[in-house]
Design a protein around this nucleic acid. Sequence first.
DNA 1: CGGCGTGTTGTTAACGCTCACAGTCTGACG
DNA 2: CGTCAGACTGTGAGCGTTAACAACACGCCG
Lengths: 339, 339
Amino acid sequence: MAPSKERLPVMADVARLAGVSHQTVSRVLNDHPNVRAETRTRVLEAIDRLGYRRNLVARALVTRHSRTLGVVSFDTTLYGPASTVYGIEQAARAAGYFVSIVSLTSIDRAGVRDALDYLAEQSVDGIVVVAPQRSAARALADLPSGVPVVAVEGGEAGDVSTVSVDQVAGARLATEHLLGLGHETVWHVSGPSDWLEAEGRVEGWRAALSAAGRRAPEVLPGDWSPRSGYEAGRRLAGMAGVTAVFVANDQMALGVLRAFAEEGVRVPERISVVGFDDIPESEFFSPPLTTVRQDFAAVGRRSIEMLLRRIEAGERWGREAFVVPPEFVARASTAPVRP
Amino acid sequence: MAPSKERLPVMADVARLAGVSHQTVSRVLNDHPNVRAETRTRVLEAIDRLGYRRNLVARALVTRHSRTLGVVSFDTTLYGPASTVYGIEQAARAAGYFVSIVSLTSIDRAGVRDALDYLAEQSVDGIVVVAPQRSAARALADLPSGVPVVAVEGGEAGDVSTVSVDQVAGARLATEHLLGLGHETVWHVSGPSDWLEAEGRVEGWRAALSAAGRRAPEVLPGDWSPRSGYEAGRRLAGMAGVTAVFVANDQMALGVLRAFAEEGVRVPERISVVGFDDIPESEFFSPPLTTVRQDFAAVGRRSIEMLLRRIEAGERWGREAFVVPPEFVARASTAPVRP
DNA sequence: CGGCGTGTTGTTAACGCTCACAGTCTGACG
DNA sequence: CGTCAGACTGTGAGCGTTAACAACACGCCG
């Protein structure tokens, strides 16, 4: 009640008030079976009266488990990472774990190492690294001592377990869809070359084209931002013979659509466009965007499941790799090629 | 090196190797002035040799400071909250604090209380609540014992300090802009009524209209989602005499634009549209969206500055309220009314 | 040459909790 | 009626760190 400056109640205070030992209080708190029902209620009453809350720091010191998980991420402002982290947080809390977040500003190896060290000091029980850049993935090769780590979109990282969406398959889906509509070939606006996801999408696109015996045109490089998509779109609008474009994410696709609109290029009548991610906005682009959905929430959930398995198994669980399948979403930005 | 299962080195191990007492090691680690230079290097060498990392949990137990800040948020998938949390995280880490995140799924009072309790158990040094709903704000009236709290967009919450963007001013800016273009009146698609931000925008819109002596039309209610904007857009397209719409966020504005496009309503020729937030996509909508920018990163930074001030001042700093001004961004979705 | 401040180091006691172990008290059983 | 398993409860130690204080060496001053 009174916001007493003095000192928060501790277990011993509760014990005194309830007329038991501090150990009995501990037993009640931890649902130990051998406590008389009457004793239990007396303790609970005392806890309530004092507004006692147990000190998890002290507990962590002795149990050597903080019940805290670390998350290392890069730019949680982007829809993908944000959704993944959200999934992680939900799953972790459901399992009774806290989540401590570190957002990277630089993507280099040193940055990742620093973040991992930082979290290790805090004695986290495990770490999820959401770092889809090649450089970040490499930094996982030499991880800190003994803390279980799971990488999201981590690619061929050292011997850490990974959870990822099958980027190659997703890109193939997109490309095959366009090919199936009769387009001679498909152009590609890619993500930054440092990103593993960008690379996987290029690979899937190439694979689909070559499987169909088509020539892969030169890649237009982007950086995930709508602006870079816009710039690529202006270039594409000025080129002859372009009828289909696979853009590596929905934000850039928006930029492409905008550029096409400005140039009077009608979508899908003259050029078909496919995106990637399925952000909530895509459905309301003009025209509604055909895209490939990534289930980020599932990725987050899975990574926690995997991490907890590793934590609870204590030691080496071997290297696992869980792959979440992408899903093709047909909307109005693609159409059969016109003769 | 060898991933020894045994035990991580502790301060005593370092002390033994360096031939000093553990207290001297502690002094070196905490940059205590009175340590001979030669001793210091010997200790640092030992630390390096053993790969020692100090245990912040033990430290927190004795210092009673965890150097961890709690963040309570709601749906960090949305651009606004995500950006704010990002700003918070950056500022906190720069100040040497960890950030522990709790995302709410339910927005009720109990949910907020649970989250605060949860964080209090973990002995966080302070808490930022990003909970712009009326119900969440009310839950702040009775906060836990003794932990400093700062609310983001918290409105008239109890006696906690707040940081917020001036929603009323932003809405007024948007509405006045439209009025200034000669529109007779301005329609409004609002956010969910439970949100303080939605309420502030309605208020600013009303104030601007009535200051200009205009009648405020009926509000079209939305829920921030593009879909709800789309539905409102279809209704507006079917109504006579609508020439200007102020939409409470950019995502809904996208839906409105989509609906208008489908109905053949040209923007801005027949109807002008203004959004709110300035998400990175807005600039590439068709047409590029005139909107009101909120500097979410600044909000996050400010909230941490305020929180740290409260923490370091120890006790009551009195109730502070920092207001971040919004910024009007003119693009192509608005035009003078046609005679 | 004794005393005293200053710089450096060590010793001991917390911090609040859980674990291991040692009781104590029942009731059932021979 | 003694014994013993089992339920319940208490005692002491220890987790790894910092804080408070004590101890020691050194040089300076009176």
